[in-house]
């Protein structure tokens, strides 16, 4: 509760949250505002913004850009959040095992993490998506699979810090089982920075998805921002609106998530001073 109240007083964090809410509302209301599928041709090709009832214009085939941006928000948010959660799941499990057990387990897991870190994330993502057929699930898993190393390292560091704290040892002496110590004592005390990094991972995941779609490696059944930019790219000089509006949508969403994540980090970080002065 205290954290929520502190967040309400955080100016840039609140701006991020409000922007994010706008994006979420657009995504939720897309089928109501635009009952026609974004793949449907509703006007003449190359309709400029404002004409023919197309607020943001039409694309090369006469599809509604506004509908595309609205439906794209659903795809971007879904993929961004789902793949960040996937990355968190992988990262926290690997980091927790590594940090808690240490020794050889730690050595093996960390070398593996480094292996993933040395390969450029985007190249690996292209490779993975191209190998498996691009679909919603494979894209989410792919982005999750290239985004977990920072989360694993962070979780490991937090676990190392907390592992030998006296309250953890006290729990061990109380006879609590390993999984209870990890889930009940260490993880709750390590969760704040993990949540912050996960929220920022959502933003990079959205960017990664857009980049994959731009390259034509997105799910062909889903209207996504990256795909729209990719499709409008060749005609950008005479029909700017086809790339600019989806581009703005990416900018606003990623900015909103970053502001929100930083606000979260500011609010969660100054740990309640537990020592008296």
């Amino acid at each position: 509760m205290e954290t929520a109240r502190a967040f309400l007083r955080h100016p840039s964090g609140m701006i991020g949250l409000l922007l994010l809410l706008v994006v979420v509302v657009v995504a939720i209301t897309a089928p109501i505002v635009f009952p026609v599928s974004p793949w449907e041709m509703v006007g003449a090709p190359f309709t400029p913004p404002g004409e023919d009832g197309l607020w943001l214009g039409g694309d090369t085939l006469g599809r509604d850009v506004a509908a595309g941006v609205a439906y794209g928000a659903r795809v971007s948010l879904l993929i961004g959040i789902a793949s960040a959660l996937a990355a968190m799941a992988i990262g926290v499990v690997i980091g927790a095992i590594s940090g808690y057990f240490g020794g050889k387990v730690d050595l093996v897991l960390m070398r593996m993490t480094e292996l993933f870190q040395t390969i450029p994330a985007f190249v690996l993502a292209i490779l993975l998506v191209a190998t498996f057929n691009p679909s919603l699930l494979t894209i989410i898993l792919t982005i999750g699979a290239v985004s977990w190393p920072p989360l694993a390292r962070l979780t490991r560091a937090e676990f190392l810090r907390l592992r030998h704290r006296e309250f953890v040892e006290a729990a061990l002496c109380q006879g609590e089982r390993t999984w209870r110590i990890v889930l009940g004592h260490i993880l709750p005390n390590a969760i704040s920075p993990i949540l912050v990094v996960t929220s920022l991972t959502v933003a990079t995941a959205i960017l990664l998805e857009s980049a994959l779609s731009f390259m034509g490696l997105g799910d062909p059944n889903l209207m996504s921002w990256g795909f729209m930019i990719g499709a409008g790219r060749t005609v950008i000089r005479n029909a700017w609106w086809m790339s600019v509006f989806p581009g703005l949508a990416i900018l606003v969403t990623v900015l909103a998530i970053n502001l929100f994540g930083e606000g979260l980090s500011d609010v969660l970080n100054p740990r309640v001073s537990r020592r008296r002065s």
Binding site: R165, A171, E176
Partner: peptide, 27 residues
């Protein structure tokens, strides 16, 4: 059982006092 030196470090800041004591027997 053991009682540690630093009473500030030896209690989980996110666990209620009652839980901290009851956990042991519950385990």
């Amino acid at each position: 059982q053991i009682v540690f030196q630093d009473p500030f470090a030896s209690l989980d800041p996110r666990q209620k006092v009652g839980d901290a004591i009851a956990r042991g027997p519950m385990a």
